[in-house]
């Protein structure tokens, strides 16, 4: 019959339309603005309204998510900040678009390099969020951030991030990437135990 295909198509759209009410009623009041509601809308059973109402609610960010890199510092017992970065330069060497600039600190007396960067710049207008710097850093000093709310009005003033802007405490890192953090800490503890035994 001519027109049957069109009717079938309209039937499908109708079931989509009705499905949204069914789901809303079944999840009465819990479908929106609750974590389990968002989880439901991103699961295989999602039907009906699919929208996640950013900014009121936000999709859960998976642990591996990568945006702009950031530098990690450890907070010592006396409250001082210790950069994990030793300015070895691997991130700057592996960065595909070459958006990392590192100034190495030289000891003013001996002239030898000190394992701490004097400055660290990332031009986020070049950065391609590939995650290589984090992947190849041997000291777990640079990691990819989860913060994507970075829009600005002026790139010339704000878009070259310096060390101050990039540095974040290790606790922040532990917060956004708990399993990675736990794994790295375990490896570190193991190494230290080995050293102590020797």
């Amino acid at each position: 019959m001519f027109g049957l295909g069109i009717l079938k198509g309209m039937w499908v759209t109708l079931t989509h339309f009705v499905g949204s009410f069914v789901d809303d009623i079944r999840w009465l009041g819990r479908r929106y603005y609750t974590p389990e509601g968002i989880a439901h809308r991103t699961s295989k059973d999602a039907r009906g309204v699919f929208t996640v109402q950013y900014p009121e609610e936000s999709l859960p960010i998976p642990e591996e998510f990568r945006f702009i890199p950031f530098l990690i510092y450890d907070v010592e017992e006396d409250g001082s900040h210790q950069d994990r970065c030793t300015s070895c330069g691997i991130c700057a060497k592996v960065c595909p678009p070459q958006c990392i600039w590192i100034v190495r600190t030289d000891d003013p007396e001996t002239g030898r390099p000190v394992p701490e960067p004097a400055e660290f710049f990332i031009d986020i207008d070049i950065c391609m969020n590939c995650g290589y710097c984090a992947e190849y850093c041997p000291f777990d000093a640079i990691k990819m951030d989860h913060d994507f709310e970075l829009s600005s009005f002026d790139r010339h003033a704000e878009h070259i991030y310096n060390k101050d802007k990039l540095s974040k405490p290790a606790s922040y890192y532990a917060g956004i990437r708990p399993t990675n953090y736990a794994r790295e800490e375990a490896i570190k503890a193991e190494k230290e135990a080995k050293k102590a035994n020797r």
Binding site: V94, W101, I160
Partner: peptide, 15 residues
């Protein structure tokens, strides 16, 4: 060829 020599260790940032 990359990596460019001026990114490290004396990398004064410029555009």
């Amino acid at each position: 060829a990359k990596p460019f020599g001026n990114r490290w260790p004396g990398g004064q940032v410029y555009r």
